[in-house]
Amino acid sequence: MKGKRAKYLVAGVIILGALAGLVYSGMKESMVYFYTPSELTEKGEALRDKALRVGGMVEQGSVRWDAQQLLLTFALTDGRSTVPVRHRGTAPDLFKEGAGAVVEGIWAPEGYLRSSTIMAKHSEEYKAPKNPETLEAKKSLFKSLLKEEKPKP
């Protein structure tokens, strides 16, 4: 009786392992959480007017803040292609040029991503700041740059 049960157990484990393998290979193909700018450019027309996510680095020198319209524009890049993004409202604190971001929105026919949500992506590296004062100074500088152009109540 015990031997039989063990056999069933082994068979069960093998079947489950195979299932997990199938699920894995299936999901690997289909589970695209975000597109890269290159993929979006390549697939271009097929994804027009679709709600999707695009992930990449915020291109250096691309961030503009229009205080009148509360419009944030920037470009996401993966080094090969670049996608322009337009976002109404502000971005998370960690959002900055040269950092990673994932943007949710609609790939508009005009050739830009109409963003509804900006998510800042951070790396798996954890380091102490070299000099905390400089870091804080940099942060407040960045914030004041953005704030400067915001409408005053």
Binding site: M27, M31, Y33, A91, P92, D93, L94, F95, V102, T117, I118, M119, A120, K121, H122
Partner: peptide, 12 residues
């Protein structure tokens, strides 16, 4: 919420 800017997202 504090770093990414969202409480939740449906990533893997």
């Amino acid at each position: 919420k504090a770093t990414w800017g969202v409480w939740w997202t449906w990533d893997a």
